[in-house]
Design a protein around this nucleic acid. Structure first.
Lengths: 227, 227
DNA sequence: CTGTCATTCAAGACATTAGTTGAATGATAT
DNA sequence: ATATCATTCAACTAATGTCTTGAATGACAG
C-alpha cells in the first residue's frame, strides 16, 4: 500500500515534468512569464495553430503550472504562482551549469554583462529622498493599488517594455516585486538592462519594506504624480 | 540570430524537463537522493532491467542531473549537486499544491504530521551545552571530516535509517547539512520523524555555524566519542 | 592473454505523444 | 432566435520515445 502510494506520487511528479518537456510548452510559459495572455495572442507569439496551442495550454493547466479564467469570449491564461517561475528559473540554472552549449549561447547574448547585486532598502530610501531615480513596482496592478513604495510607478511585467520608451536612460531604475522568491523584478531589470538602462533590483519585496517600518502609499495616483 | 539562439536555449531547457518526465527516471533520482549508488543497486531498487536502467541513467547524466565515476568494474552514479535535489523538491511542492490526488496521498502517509520549524543555531548551542541531545551531520563523510559541529555524528543520508536503530527515541535529534538550500537535513529529519523520533533541522548549515564564530571539530572521532 | 564481471551500445518491435483537420461548445451581439 | 467569434473537443496520421535483445567494451583476476 505504502509502496503503491509512493509509486502513484512519483507518477504525478513525472507528469509535471512531462508538461515542461516540450519546447512549445516551454515557450508558452516564457510568454506567460511576461504577463497573462489570451489563447490567440499565445498562438500568434509562438507560431502554433490555435487548436494545437489550446491543447498545449490545457496540458499545462492540467498539472497546475498555469490557470485560466474566462473574459467574455476569450480565455485568459497565466502562470499559477511564483513556483512556476521558480521552476523555470531553476531549470535554466541547471542548464547553464551543465550544458556547455547553453552557457555559450547565454554568454553570446549577454555580451559579458553581469547581473548587478540588488540594492539594499536603506540605500533605496536615500536615493528616493535625493530624487533623480525611478522605482518600478513589478507586481500586478491590484497589488500595487493596495500598497506600494511612495513614488514608485506601477509596471506589470508585460508593460515594462512599453514603459521603458518614456524613461530617461541616464536615470537609474530600481525594480521590486513581492519578495526574495518572486522573480518579476529580476526579469524586469534584466529586460531593462538589455535596453541600455541602468536597472537593478531592490533587496526583498514590499513586505520587507513594510517590515522595516518604511512609509507605504496606496491607490493609483503615483503614476500621474510623476508624469 | 537572436531568435534562433533563444529557440535553441528553450530546446535545451525542455530537454532537462524531458529527462525528469519519466516515472522510472524520477525513481532513480529518488534512490540517488539517498546517496550514491552503482547501476546494479539502482536496477535492483527500481526493478528495471540492467540495460534499461543504464540507458535511463545516461539520459539523466546527459542533461547534467547526475554524474558518474568509475570504481573498478562498477560505475557509481550520484546527483550532480543540490540543484537537482531542489528541482525535485520544487516539482513535489507544485504537485502538492495543484494535484488533489497528491495532497490526499501525502496526507494519508503523513497522518497529519506537520514539519516543525528549524531550530536556531543559538538554541542548538544551548542544548548541546546542556547535553541530552543528538546532532546529526547529514553531509558526505569527507565533508564531515573536514569540519563539523563538535559532538555531531556523521550520518550520510543513506545511513540515517541504520543509525536510527541505535538512537534513543526520547532524545531530541537535530540535523544539519550544507546550508539553507541543501535539503539533506530536511530529508533526514522527515525520515526520522516518520520513525517516531523528535527530529528537527537546524537553521542554516555548517558554513553559517562557522560564520557565527562557533567552534568546529575535525576528523572522524566524534562518532566514537559518543558510543 | 584469457575469462569473467559490470556496464554500455545498437537495432528492432511496441507504445505513447504530437500535430492537423473539421465539428462542437459557450458567450456575445444583432 | 440566429449569427459570429474564440476556444475546445475528437479522431486520425506522423513522429518520438521506450523496452528488449544480443553483441561490444573496459577493468580486473588468474
Amino acid at each position: 500500500m505504502s509502496t503503491s502510494n509512493k509509486l502513484a506520487l512519483i507518477d504525478e511528479y513525472a507528469s509535471i515534468a512531462r508538461a515542461l518537456a516540450s519546447p512549445h510548452r516551454m515557450r508558452l510559459l516564457e510568454q506567460l512569464a511576461q504577463g497573462e495572455k489570451g489563447v490567440d495572442a499565445l498562438a500568434e507569439g509562438t507560431g502554433l495553430a490555435f487548436a494545437n496551442c489550446s491543447q498545449h495550454l490545457q496540458e499545462l493547466r492540467r498539472v497546475g503550472l498555469v490557470t485560466s479564467r474566462r473574459e467574455g469570449k476569450a480565455v485568459i491564461y497565466r502562470l499559477t504562482d511564483d513556483d512556476t517561475l521558480r521552476l523555470m528559473a531553476l531549470i535554466q540554472k541547471i542548464a547553464r551549469n551543465t550544458i556547455a552549449l547553453v552557457d555559450e549561447i547565454l554568454d553570446r547574448i549577454a555580451g559579458g554583462t553581469v547581473r548587478p547585486e540588488p540594492v539594499s532598502r536603506e540605500v533605496l530610501a536615500e536615493r528616493l529622498a535625493a530624487g533623480d531615480v525611478v522605482v518600478l513596482d513589478i507586481r500586478p496592478p491590484d497589488e500595487y493599488a493596495t500598497g506600494h513604495i511612495p513614488g514608485a510607478l506601477s509596471a506589470p511585467l508585460e508593460e515594462v517594455a512599453k514603459l521603458a520608451e518614456s524613461l530617461d536612460p541616464s536615470t537609474p531604475i530600481y525594480a521590486y516585486c513581492r519578495g526574495p522568491y518572486c522573480l518579476y523584478a529580476d526579469r524586469a531589470a534584466a529586460e531593462l538592462r538589455q535596453r541600455g538602462f541602468d536597472a537593478r533590483t531592490v533587496e526583498g519585496g514590499l513586505p520587507d519594506w513594510r517590515a522595516d517600518g518604511r512609509p507605504v502609499a496606496e491607490g493609483n495616483k503615483a503614476v500621474d504624480a510623476v508624469f
